[in-house]
Simulated assay, not measured.
Amino acid sequence: MKHGRKLLAPVAGYTPGEQPTDPGVIKLNTNENPYPPSPKVMEALRALDPGALRRYPDPVSARFRAACAARHGLPGPEWVIAGNGMDELLSLVLRTFVDPGDDVLAPYPTYSLYEVLCALHGCRMVSVDLDGDFQLTEAFFKTPARLCFLARPNAPTGVAVPRGAVERLCREFPGIVVIDEAYVDFCDDHCMDFPERFENAIVMRTFSKSFSLAGMRVGVAAARPELINEFMKVKDSYNMNAVSQAVGLAAIEDYGYMRASAERVRATRAWLRAELTALGFNVPESQSNFLLARWAGTPNARGLFEALRGEKNILVRYFPHRMLADALRITVGTDDECAALVRALGEIIG
């Protein structure tokens, strides 16, 4: 590329999951919520003043941040920053706290966007393998870096590191610890109390999964005010548009609706895990809205992925990478969608 930056030359970029245009496809590949957002979200959309589109939005998302702080028991809105999806906040945290050339720590396997963002920023991703149960190893705790990314629950495994291990990490790690809680509303517990307990902890949440707002791009991060102030220096002037602020506020204020939706997903997750296990898959206990189904039979995992896509019109996710090449990542859909998947797998496996 004649005019491109040298830094970008080796960067492939992030590969998102396939977004089909055929409405007949059973889509279990991108961890979206199968249920709609709160009716109050739709009311907020319909009630939006056309003037809100003409004017610039609140540059600091004050009402939305205050509502998030209140919901999560934080001292005030100065403990929260809002973002254009959590992906923006992940990018911001590198721009805010990491210099080019620094090391950034993450377990492997994990959310592949971390490595892409590090490459774009010019810092080095240091990956330490998880153990056979997808838990942190002693080597991970002993690896120094400027910042650490820890997805809890992890993607694409669905496994959640115990809170005690995260507490140890926050106590011993010399830099910033970013606790990525994108899937935490499907989990048994959370770490939203950590910013008050640890000066280096940043907890991030997305509204894409449990709140069913993937199409709106709404995310938040919680940290001590001195860290939030640094974020504010770096973020775009108007990083949250007026529509996203309105629907985000409506969603967080109808928290009970989200909890009911998440519980439906958790119930289906338990059923699907049992069915996949009965088919012969090895499925770690997930704390997320997806399952990692490991397969040692015939056809292999790639073959299953291709047969589901080509013959059954069902999309799941396959990662041709180390520690993952024997597995399918399967989003927990509706009961009917998951039943169709189980039938299809049974037919393919024979």
Rank of each mutant, 00 (worst) to 15 (best):
A9G: 00
A9S: 10
P10W: 07
P16G: 09
G17I: 00
T21P: 00
K27F: 08
K27I: 11
L28A: 04
P34S: 04
K40W: 10
P50F: 06
L53A: 09
R54S: 09
P57W: 08
P57T: 01
P57C: 08
P59M: 07
S61A: 15
R71E: 12
L74Q: 11
V80H: 05
A82G: 15
D87N: 09
L90C: 04
S91I: 04
L92F: 05
V93K: 00
L94R: 06
L94W: 04
V104S: 10
Y108R: 13
T110K: 02
L120E: 15
L120R: 14
H121S: 03
M125S: 14
S127T: 13
V128Q: 02
V128N: 05
D129K: 13
L130G: 04
Q135W: 02
L136P: 10
F140I: 01
T143E: 13
A145Y: 01
L147S: 03
F149N: 07
R152G: 01
P156Y: 07
T157F: 06
G158V: 07
V159H: 00
P162C: 05
P162I: 01
P162K: 01
R163V: 10
R163F: 03
G164C: 01
V166W: 05
L169Y: 05
R171S: 12
R171L: 13
E172C: 08
I179S: 11
A182Y: 12
Y183I: 02
Y183H: 14
C187V: 00
H190G: 12
E196G: 14
R197T: 10
N200H: 08
V203H: 08
M204W: 00
T206P: 01
S212E: 02
S212Y: 01
M216N: 11
G219H: 04
A221D: 03
A222Q: 00
E230L: 15
M232Q: 15
K235T: 11
A242Y: 00
A242H: 10
S244N: 12
A246M: 09
A250Y: 08
A251Q: 03
E253I: 05
E253Y: 05
D254K: 01
D254H: 09
Y255Q: 04
A260K: 14
A260Q: 15
A260V: 12
S261V: 15
A267M: 12
T268V: 15
A270I: 11
R273W: 07
R273Q: 15
A278D: 13
F281E: 06
V283W: 05
S286Q: 07
L291H: 08
L292V: 09
L292K: 08
R294N: 10
N300I: 03
L304Q: 10
A307C: 05
R309V: 03
R309G: 07
E311M: 02
E311C: 00
E311V: 03
N313G: 06
V316Y: 03
P320M: 01
R322Q: 09
V332N: 03
D335F: 11
D336K: 12
R343D: 14
L345H: 11
G346C: 06
E347M: 04
E347D: 13
